[in-house]
């Protein structure tokens, strides 16, 4: 195969001059001329248009990201502040509630005391009235007993055949009852 390749390459050489077209220095001037033009064009395209444009896009993006991060940080601190304010409000509300509870308790206690005093007074008044009524009833009862006793004594005396003397009987009964 190697000989094959060589012979083919030989044939090619015969047609196109040197074996490696790269070493054919007759066209180097042409290649270098066009290469230099190409490099200059690419250099100006890149340095004047493409690279500043990409650099600005990258810088802009970096800036946006930085700003967004700062804004996020800001919002985070605001959220912390809001949380602290909420906590404070909660504590305040709790203290207020406790104060109101204590106040209400004191008020209720006062009302209760007043109500108890009134009730005591009423009870005392009612007890006094009751005692009076009882005393009246007692007195009435004594009187009634006297009358009943007189009557009964009179009847007994009459039944035994005596003559009932009202005055004597009364005096007797009274004396007995005192006894």
């Amino acid at each position: 195969m190697a000989t094959d390749t060589t012979s083919a390459a030989d044939a090619g050489q015969a047609a196109a001059g040197p074996g490696m077209p790269q070493l054919d220095f007759s066209n180097w001037g042409n290649q270098i001329f066009w290469l230099v033009i190409t490099l200059i064009v690419i250099y100006f395209v890149l340095s004047r248009i493409a690279l500043p444009r990409i650099a600005s896009v990258l810088a802009e993006r970096q800036g946006t990201i930085t700003n967004d991060l700062a804004a996020a940080e800001d919002l985070k601190s605001k959220a912390h502040e809001a949380e602290a304010a909420y906590e404070k409000a909660l504590i305040d509300a709790r203290a207020e509630a406790q104060r109101i509870v204590a106040e209400t308790k004191v008020g209720i206690q006062a009302d209760l005391n007043a109500a108890i005093a009134t009730a005591d007074e009423e009870i005392a008044a009612k007890a006094a009235a009751g005692e009076k009524v009882i005393a009246d009833i007692k007195a009435n009862a004594l009187d009634s007993i006297k009358v009943v006793a007189n009557d009964t004594a009179k009847e007994i005396v009459t039944a035994m055949g005596g003559k009932a003397d009202a005055k004597t009987i009364t005096a007797a009964v009274t004396a007995r009852m005192k006894g």
Binding site: A9, M20, P21, N27, N30, Q31, W34
Partner: peptide, 30 residues
């Protein structure tokens, strides 16, 4: 049969006409 011309692809040729290649000739390199 087998034809090996592996280096032919590197030949510098004029695009228009077939004259000798000068410095400013427009070639396949151009």
């Amino acid at each position: 049969g087998l034809v090996f011309k592996p280096m032919d692809q590197f030949n510098v040729e004029a695009l228009f006409g077939s004259g000798p290649i000068g410095v400013f000739t427009i070639t396949n390199v151009t």
